[in-house]
Design a protein around this nucleic acid. Structure first.
Lengths: 137, 137
DNA sequence: AAATTTACTTGCATTTTGCAAGTAATTAAT
DNA sequence: ATTAATTACTTGCAAAATGCAAGTAAATTT
């Protein structure tokens, strides 16, 4: 892994340097929905990430402490990935992105209900989401 | 411009398909801070985007109605870029990203004050920011 | 013991990025 | 009026990232 030079200390920039690509936030999203995922779980997602890209993104996210690896309780052949606190704290970002996209694009039917709840009391929705996720740490 | 195939209707995915890269949100950020920017203004930003990348990102953002071009009042040689309503609505995303990064990374001194204000009353801060920006439309 | 599953890695073609230089249309300076 | 700068890009090319298909090694299942 090469150390990419830091472009600036702007918080937007620092964030983009870590997860500013077309895949990383989908991995984070999967972990927010499912709490724990195996490598295979990520590959099953609708967007069909390539296995080498998945491996490289997981590595970057792990190196930056957004996710951690755990032993799978059932099998040594499996690995569980889960969000760290730092990863969980991206929940507000994920919520706002979702709400933005919902305003301008079609959203799958099954997502609409959650988004309604998020809108009704955004702060509470976010706080509760984070609290729930942190229970699993 | 090639039409990239849609990977899924997930709102996170739809968003990433448009601005999921290392530069687009920096352009959006600049426009949120400065309201209107010329091509040269973007090039002056600390992160030093390459001119061809800037041109291609501006085109994508314009094609997706996040920004618009305006005639510069002073000169036909200049072009003004500004956010559309759809672009302005990304403000909550920008705020949450900033707050996330502030928790885990160094932030330039001059940004700290505004981030404090954002934290103190996030909803009001966001609403006011959006309202102000929409005045310029 | 053999077949399957799981988490990756590898090789290679395609695409995107980044850098440096170039261009065309204004605008400013002489 | 002519020349020099500005401004907003474009172009060419090397380097890096992405995407696809196939391969591998350890564990698990049959």
């Amino acid at each position: 892994m090469k150390t990419s030079k830091k472009r600036s200390d702007c918080p937007i920039n620092r964030s983009l340097e870590i997860w500013g690509d077309k895949w990383s936030l989908l991995i984070i999203r999967d972990l927010m929905f499912k709490k724990q995922c195996t490598y295979g779980d990520f590959l099953k997602s609708e967007e069909k990430i390539a296995t080498n890209i998945l491996a490289s993104r997981l590595l970057v996210l792990e190196e930056n402490d957004l996710i951690t690896k755990l032993d799978h309780p059932d099998s040594k052949a499996k690995v569980l990935y889960q969000l760290t606190e730092k990863g969980i704290e991206l929940f507000p970002v994920i919520v706002e992105i979702s709400l933005w996209a919902e305003k301008y694009y079609e959203v799958p039917e099954e997502r609409k209900l959650v988004l309604e709840k998020a809108k009704q009391n955004k702060a509470a929705f976010i706080e509760k989401g984070i609290r729930k996720m942190k229970e699993g740490l």
